[in-house]
Design a protein around this nucleic acid. Structure first.
Length: 1197
RNA sequence: GCCCGGGUGGUGAAAUGGUAGACACGAGGGACUUAAAAUCCCUUGGUCCGUAAGGGCCGUGCGGGUUCAAGUCCCGCCCCGGGCACCA
């Protein structure tokens, strides 16, 4: 390998001749060589070698876009690569994989536009991405690469989905359990008490109770529908964020300010049949788990905000509708006097609530209705009669659908509302129904007679439709289409009448309630509105609904609302509390209704002030005329049991009292909503579900993966079905398959597990691999995933843990967010100069006064364009820097000016290359523009500048913003690597500043790191006495001599700093330390192996190519990547003396050197004895002398 | 509005309460060279005094405070970036 030769009596050199005729540090050949070797030798192949301690370093899953990498993308990868390599040197078995989140919208959009299959586009993008990554020299084990769009991968994504479908959340055990255990429980004890109220995120559906006997009598379909309410993956009607432009549903975190995060398209709230994941079941655990994680505080805060836990109470206010309860109460159903009144609703979207109401009424029929039902049910009338059926927007008592005959039984209450009944009859008749009415007494007196009358009516009517609903007790819509698909399980629901439920965090302020406010979308709004207020309320609700989410957010300080005319009863005082509607109350949070306490809540206060509602003081010392008192340390002043209590105690007491009365209870509410899981899209994982009898069933595991079918177009079908509906035979055993696909975050919610055992065909990963690798030790990625990916990632991990598939319940112990590398855009101003009247008339050009006299701008016809009638037209111009030019030419009349970004390749040192930019505009707007520079102008080319004595360059204006193709400010790492090499790029990205911080990219600074690498290289190739000059033969020259004390000090100081800095992930300072070492060793002319060799190892994580090359040249056969990490030794850092800064009153005045061994007193004595110090003291005695050993001496005078 | 970050030379940035500006870019000057590249050396926060050697004062967003000593800790503001937002 090398030959030994004697150069001098005390110097032995190893001279290794490796390259002929190469000079200096040749990054190109070195990097190509080692990248090739690593690949050929599988240097970074990782085995599940359980004998060694493991370390798992993971980068956030990239989505490979067509635009390729820019210099900002690898920042985090470089940092994680340094840690991975460092840990490998330190004896760990390091897992550092990479793969792709390869399903996604952009490939699909491209497919829609071009017809190109997204798989193909994705393949091309991946290849490009891989090529770019390879050039940077990462230590990824590519044999473990995963792709979410690979069926071998998404098989397990689908499998996890089925696990979710097969699970329910046991609130008592606080974990997910198999659905079979729930079924067993229903069979044994039914569903009662706690089980009966299940919150399902956006759906917030109340489950009625049923006994074990009832459960056993339910048919299969009913059982399945009930189980939907408990599954962690469930199908239901939910409010979703529908984006018409993208044609799909978006998750909450994909919507920002009322528009889609990707593309900025408007988003509307819509009620849709939707697959959802019950992440809300995990809200508390997701919150608690944060405390155990070494993640940045900002990410943890963002997640805490997103989960949004608030403690408080649920309070029920009985509704007493004053208008509808005059005098003695008529026959009532359990729900209250106004129930019949509630039959009328104004809105189709209340459908599912109507069904619940219908079910409730059916369960609590009036005596008369019940009697009649017994005589007309089944085939007693010769055809099928349904009861409490929804028609359009009414619930009718009975109906025959084929005959379109409505039968109503009027209780006494109807006397009071004949007018409405008439309207209702008219409405139904317009729909083609005949309405017949019977009085309560008549039915009770002679049910048989009534039955005969009904049969007569039925026989007199023709057949209108076939009644194809076969379910015995089913409720089906007669006018379908408003809400697609199944609506609800046939279970008893919550009665809509009777009470308004509110959530409050301040039950202690209950005595200050002066009204209730409902969200405009609240289900009770139409029901509580009194006839005389109906028009007004409807108008308000409609306008509130029609205003977009965005508008509502924008008009936050506008108070609006309307009184319903109804009153509720205060649970403590029994006082009448008016019920209002206001859009400051959000339908989606809590119960969609608030108890308004103007004295204690500023929003309520503003509402009360605006509408002149009473403001009641709830706290001592509050100035309620000015504002609400929201202090949480106040004392309650309301008369009664809360008086004198501090807020926290009063809250506890109020909840106790509410519970005593049964008017409420303590409750914890979360802002977190269940996650929408279906996308009306092609390029995603198919959901492994088929439908039988309209009920979803899981595909058997043996059928996985359910592969994406081929389709003719990637668009929705003509009737709005998702693209998968285009596929031929999209069915399982003749049953239709689900047509929506999973969202982008599905595959990325568990990918870290697959890397542990990527080829496993039997399981998502073997138990051995999972047990060995466990959690990610270091996760590096952008903070933009704070509430999306990182929450789902944790959710799936917890779920898999609950179901016993993994032993840990958090995916990543430590998380580091790299900052964004921003681009520096270069801007110019483009627009038009409007030529004035004089110019048009006389064709003389535009005279412009400047500081040095008059300057003629368009002073020749050559520079003017003319319209058909021969007059000069408005001239297109490009000017920069705008402010300077405007100072010079204040008389220019400008129109339509705007700042635009110039592609950065046309800008050098802030000066625009006019010709180049001009050419790039060819055929586009402003292609024939006149360029105006500061102090003069340029026509087409600098050579034709008409004011040669003035500044001639177009200076662009730099702006720091996001690096993106559309902003023309992208710097491609390939270009940097071609010029400086990957090692330089790696070092420079690290050197730029702290990893977490965002910073603009400035290629200029890269020279410094490039220079450093050359200096470092030259330390091994020094040519005799010339410092910094490499030998022309490029042979390594290292001395075997023992290093000197200062050399050892440099070495060990560097090892110490670099080791500590990597542990802290402070890479910029470790690079600086390497630079210091290279500079100092250069000055010391040190080329000793004992010093340089450890430095090569220490540098290897940062600049692996050059390190490998030098390592090899130093005579090592094995890769530097397996060399043990060099340890620093404190003994070499010990100093004999310390140079003390001597300060007077904290201001340093001089330096004095003393031996470290000196005691405080000795130092003080010697300092005071110093003549310079004495001179400063001017004979005065110091008041005090502070000596901090090895730090400072401070003399107080 | 609330919650996180952050504000230091021309620029990117360093700095366990203890010499503010390490390291690097850029700029200026110099050496080597026919020249360029490369390399090396010097200067580079502001300002004032001095021919010079040298010295003084001011300086980490602003105003206070604690301390022998504050970029760092405390209080109150201002500005920038990010997150959340009529969340009851």
């Amino acid at each position: 390998m090398g030959r030994k030769c004697r150069v001098g009596p005390w110097l032995t050199l190893y001279i290794c001749r490796l390259y002929k005729n190469t000079m200096q540090y040749e990054h190109k050949s070195i990097e190509a060589k080692w990248q090739g070797k690593w690949k050929a030798e599988g240097t970074y192949r990782v085995t599940n070698d359980t004998a060694r301690p493991k370390y798992y370093v993971l980068d956030m899953f990239p989505y490979p876009s067509g635009a390729g990498l820019h210099v900002g993308h690898p920042l985090g990868y470089i940092a994680s690569d340094i840690v991975a390599r460092y840990k490998r040197h330190s004896g760990f078995n390091v897992l550092h994989p990479m793969g792709y989140d390869s399903f996604g919208l952009p490939a699909e959009q491209y497919a829609i536009q071009t017809g190109q299959h997204p798989a193909k586009t994705t393949e091309i993008n991946l290849a490009r991405y891989r090529e770019q990554l390879d050039r940077i020299g990462f230590s990824f084990d590519w044999s473990r690469e995963v792709r979410t769009s690979d069926p071998a991968y998404y098989k397990w994504t689908q499998w996890i989905f089925l696990q979710l479908f097969d699970s329910w959340y046991d609130a008592t055990a606080d974990k997910a359990r198999p659905i079979s255990e729930l079924i067993a429980r229903f069979e044994a004890q039914g569903c009662t008490g706690q089980d009966a109220s299940v919150l399902t995120g956006d759906v917030e559906e109340f489950m009625g109770e049923f006994s074990a006997e009832e459960w056993r009598t339910f048919d299969e379909r009913t059982k399945q529908l009930i189980l939907q309410h408990f599954r962690l993956a469930y199908l239901s009607d939910a409010w979703v964020n529908w984006c018409p432009a993208l044609g799909t549903v978006l998750a909450n975190d994909e919507v920002k300010d009322g528009v889609s995060e990707r593309g900025g398209h408007p988003v509307e709230r819509k009620r849709m049949k939707q697959w959802s994941l019950r992440i809300t079941a995990y809200a508390q655990r997701l919150l608690d788990g944060l405390d155990t994680l070494d993640w940045s505080e900002s990410i943890k805060e963002a997640q805490r905000n997103w989960i949004g836990r608030s403690e408080g109470a649920l309070v029920r206010f009985a509704v007493k509708n004053m208008d509808l309860t005059p005098g003695p109460s008529p026959v009532e159903r359990g729900g209250g006097a106004s129930e019949h009144r509630f039959r009328e609703t104004t809105d189709g979207f209340l459908w599912s609530k109507l069904i619940e109401h219908a079910k409730s009424m059916r369960r609590n029929p009036t005596e008369a209705e019940d009697r009649l039902w017994h005589v007309i049910r089944g085939t007693a009338t010769g055809g099928r009669i349904r009861r409490q059926h929804i028609i359009d927007k009414f619930i009718v008592d009975f109906v025959s659908l084929p005959k379109q005959l409505v039968i109503e039984v009027d209780s006494d209450i109807h006397d009071l509302q004949q007018e409405q009944d008439a309207a209702r009859t008219l409405h139904l008749e317009q729909k083609g129904f005949k309405v017949i009415r019977f009085r309560n007494e008549e039915v009770l007196r002679d049910a048989e007679g009534v039955r005969h009358k009904i049969i007569q009516e039925l026989n007199a009517r023709p057949d209108f439709a076939t009644d194809d609903d076969t379910s015995e007790d089913g409720i089906s819509p007669l006018s379908p289409g408003e809400v697609p698909g199944e609506h609800s399980s046939p279970l008893p629901g919550r009665g809509v009448g009777g009470e308004v439920e509110v959530f409050t965090t301040r039950p202690d302020t209950l005595f200050g309630v002066s009204f209730l406010t409902l969200a405009p979308e609240h289900e009770l709004v139409p029901l509580l509105t009194t006839p005389e207020r109906k028009a007004e309320v409807e108008a308000y609700v409609n306008s509130a609904k029609n205003r977009s989410e965005r508008e509502r957010q924008a008009e936050v300080d506008k108070v609006s609302g309307v009184f319903t005319g109804s009153y509720a009863k205060h649970p403590f005082t029994g006082a009448d509390v008016p019920v209002w509607v206001g859009d400051y109350v959000l339908a989606g949070y809590g119960t969609g209704a608030v108890m308004a306490v103007p004295g204690g809540d500023q929003r309520d206060w503003r509402f009360a002030k605006h509408f002149g509602l009473p403001i009641i003081a709830v706290t001592e010392g509050a100035d309620i005329e000015k504002e609400a008192d929201e202090r949480k340390d106040a004392t309650i002043c309301s008369e009664g049991f809360l008086k004198g209590l501090k807020v926290p105690q009063a809250i506890t007491r109020a909840i106790q009292e509410l519970e005593k009365l049964g008017a409420g209870e303590g409750k914890i509410n979360f802002r977190l909503r269940d996650a929408a899981f279906g996308r009306q899209r092609y390029w995603g994982e198919p959901i492994p579900i088929y439908y039988k009898d309209g009920v979803p069933y899981p595909l058997p595991e043996s059928e996985l993966p359910l592969k994406l079918p081929e389709v003719d177009k990637f668009l929705p079908t003509e009737d709005g079905e998702p693209p998968l509906a285009r596929a031929a035979n999209w069915s399982y055993n003749g049953n239709p398959l689900e047509t929506t696909t999973m969202p982008g975050w599905a595959g990325s919610s568990w990918y870290f597990l697959r890397y542990m055992d990527p080829q496993n065909a039997e399981r998502f990963a073997s138990a051995e691999a999972l047990n060995y690798w466990q959690q990610v030790d270091l996760y590096v990625g952008g903070s933009e995933h704070a509430t999306g990916h990182l929450l789902y990632f944790r959710f799936w991990t917890k779920f898999l843990h609950d179901r016993g598939h993994i032993t840990f319940d958090e995916p990543a112990k430590k998380l580091v967010n790299q900052g964004m590398i921003q681009g520096v855009s270069q801007r110019v101003t483009v627009g038009y100069v409007d030529l004035d009247h004089q110019v048009r008339q006389q064709r003389v050009g535009l005279r412009i006064p400047t500081e040095t006299g008059e300057f003629q701008l368009f002073n020749s016809e050559e520079y003017l364009k003319y319209s058909d009638d021969g007059t000069p037209v408005t001239q297109s111009v490009i000017m920069s820097p705008r402010s300077e030019i405007l100072k010079d030419f204040d008389s220019i009349n400008m129109v339509n000016f705007q700042e635009v970004n110039v592609p950065i390749e046309h800008v050098a040192d802030g000066v625009l290359d006019v010709s180049g930019y001009r050419d790039s505009l060819e055929g586009r707007k402003h292609a024939d523009a006149v360029f105006i520079a500061d102090g003069g102008f340029v026509w087409r080319d600098v050579s034709k500048c008409l004011s040669p004595n003035r500044t001639q360059s177009i200076r662009t204006e730099p702006v720091v913003e996001k690096m993106s193709k559309s902003k023309f400010n992208v710097v491609n790492p390939d270009d940097i690597i071609a010029k400086y090499g990957a090692d330089t790029l790696r070092l420079y990205e690290m050197f730029l500043g702290p990893l977490e911080q965002s910073k603009p990219w400035d290629t200029n600074g890269i020279e410094g790191t490039y220079r450093f690498l050359r200096k470092f290289w030259n330390l091994f190739h020094q040519e005799g006495a010339t410092p910094g000059q490499a030998r022309s033969d490029n042979a390594v020259v290292v001395s075997e001599e023992a290093p000197t004390k200062p050399e050892l000090k440099v070495l060990h100081a560097t090892l110490k700093k670099v080791t500590e800095d990597i542990e802290k992930m402070s890479f910029n300072t470790s690079v600086a330390q390497f630079m210091i070492a290279a500079n100092e060793l250069g000055s010391l002319k040190c080329n000793k192996r004992a010093v340089l060799e450890p430095l090569v190892v220490a540098l290897a994580p940062f600049a692996p190519h050059i390190a490998e090359e030098l390592w090899e040249k130093l005579g090592h056969a094995e890769s530097v990547t397996v060399a043990p990490w060099p340890q620093w030794d404190a003994q070499h850092l010990v100093e004999d003396n310390f140079s003390y800064p001597i300060s007077f009153n904290g201001k340093t005045r001089l330096m004095l050197e003393f031996p470290i061994a000196l005691s405080k007193e000795e130092v003080e004595a010697q300092v005071l004895a110093n003549p310079e110090v004495q001179a400063k003291l001017e004979g005065k005695a110091p008041k005090k002398v502070i000596v901090v050993p090895k730090r400072i001496v401070n003399i107080v005078v």
